[in-house]
Nucleic acid binder design. Structure first.
Length: 430
RNA sequence: GGACAGGUGGCCGAGUGGUCGAAGGCGCACGCCUGGAAAGUGUGUAGGCGGGAGACCGUCUCCAGGGUUCGAAUCCCUGUCUGUCCGCCA
């Protein structure tokens, strides 16, 4: 959500930032709405002030025994009442219209975000590791002999349809190990607070984290009207909603391992084989709530937390800074981490680390009281995957695959596998 | 699903028609006290919106929306959320 006062102060900067994102200028439209709104508010308040004054004098007139004046003022007050109520209704309508309009305008990119149209314009900022040299042709995760017995798409389709997977045995175990590993690093080493949040949320939480009203079709909704979260960013961030916290409580850092649900409307035909893109998947999420001055440093910190996991899992990756055209609706700056998938011979997104600035905080009214005693200000909120568990599983399997169809698991996971180090070609663990 | 009880400031909590933006406490800020701190003590401390260069002014807000009344935190209606008990289920 944008601050209309900021737009009022510098409409050119607002439009320029929108245009960097490839969007048409909007300030003229917004300012016209704002002006109409303020005029109505002014009129309503002036009428109210007049009525309030007269109402006060009613009592005084009565006290003096001035019946004529008393009656005159009473009549004046009740006459004003209708006028005020009409003006108030109009002012409210104008205000609601402006808010509704603002709610569907994306966040503005930070100045250091490169301009571009799509993912081809993203800026690679670092790489880690060297893709392994295979002396055979590496296959995709679902084609690995040792994986096949415990990664079952047919049965999942029977149960739930396309874009679901039924994991069992060795693969289910590695998947679980990965989530545990990530949570342990975040809580024991990175200082994040573990949270186990609800995955069904209300409208307010969706709206506050900018998933509504614009992207309703991307999420699943229950018959009771609740939403299945598309990411635990939603409940974790919404913890801060409607609060004014002391500055000393910042930053707040959370992590959660949760199920995530996405309808994947609009991605028909994309990534249809394997478990890269599913309606239901698991993700370990990181969310930080910070002082506005700290959010940029916090984003780098989060990025390192995510990258570190891949390094420990020995998975080559590259980190890119998304260009203006590739960023999500609520983001001000986003780094994507892309893991190397030998089976696809490509880097694929495994984490996305974004700062929203005060964009979400304004929507959900999340503020902090400055230590110097000033007015409450909006916090900054950040979110990042650390990491997408299913995709991480794919990376581990593809990078560890052997010519005989077995998979060598990274050392970091051995402790989470009861000492097992390998998925054998027959699907067993040893 | 049934029956009750509630929703007040950053937090807790008093307040059943006017003198209430709201007692008291906690927290926080500043001062006093102290060698320093703690304790103690004094003072201050809600937010949104609109106007103004600013001091400041206006307006709204005691869950939300309606209603009663000259006047509503307080009474009535509806909605919503929370809690408790019963039932059902895990």
């Amino acid at each position: 959500m944008h601050d209309i006062r900021a737009i009022r102060e510098n409409p050119a900067a607002f439009d320029a930032a929108l245009s960097r994102r490839g969007d048409a200028p909007l300030s003229a439209e917004l300012l016209a709405m704002d002006e109409a709104r303020r005029a109505k508010i002014g009129a309503a308040e002036a009428a109210q002030a007049e009525a309030n004054k007269a109402a006060k004098e009613v009592g005084a007139a009565k006290g003096r025994g001035d019946e004529a004046e008393f009656e005159r003022l009473r009549a004046l007050v009740s006459e004003k009442k209708a006028e005020i109520s009409a003006l108030n209704d109009e002012a409210k309508a104008q205000d609601a219209a402006l808010t509704e309009r603002l709610a569907v305008i994306p966040n503005l990119p930070a100045d250091d975000v490169p301009m571009g149209a799509d993912e081809n314009d993203n800026e690679e900022i670092s790489t880690w590791g060297t893709p392994r040299e295979f002396d055979f042709k590496p296959v995709e995760h679902f084609e690995i002999a040792g994986v096949k017995p415990s990664m079952d798409f047919e049965t999942a389709a029977k149960i739930s349809g396309s874009r679901f997977v039924l994991m069992s045995g060795a693969v289910a175990r590695v998947h679980r190990a990965l989530a545990q590993f990530m949570l342990d690093i975040h809580t024991l080493e990175n200082g994040l607070t573990e949270v186990n949040p609800p995955v069904l949320v209300r409208d307010d939480a969706m709206y506050g984290t900018d998933k509504l009203p614009k992207f309703a079709e991307d999420s699943y909704q229950t018959t009771e009207g609740m939403w299945l979260i598309s990411t635990s960013e939603i409940p974790l961030t919404y913890i801060a909603a409607n609060h004014v916290i002391d500055e000393s409580y910042l930053p707040r850092r959370y992590t959660a391992h949760s199920l995530c649900f996405r309808s994947e409307a609009g991605s028909a035909g994309r990534d249809t084989s394997g478990m890269l893109r599913q309606h239901q998947f698991e993700k370990v999420e990181m969310v930080s709530v910070t002082h506005p001055n700290e959010s940029d440093a916090e984003q780098k910190r989060m990025l390192r937390c995510a990258e570190d996991l891949l390094e420990r899992l020995e998975i080559p990756y590259r980190t890119v800074l998304l260009c203006t055209g590739d960023m999500g609706f609520g983001a001000r700056r986003t780094f994507d981490i892309e893991a190397w998938l030998p089976g696809q011979n490509a880097y694929r997104e495994i984490s996305s680390v974004s700062t929203t600035g005060e964009f979400q905080a304004r929507r959900m009214n999340a503020r902090f009281k400055p230590a110097d005693g000033g007015k409450p200000q909006f916090v900054h909120t950040l979110n990042g995957s650390g990491l997408a568990v299913g995709r991480c599983l794919i990376a581990v399997l593809e990078n560890g695959q052997q010519e005989d169809g077995s998979v060598t698991l990274p050392k970091a996971l051995h402790g989470y596998m009861g000492g097992k180090t390998t998925i054998n070609a027959d699907g067993s663990l040893s």
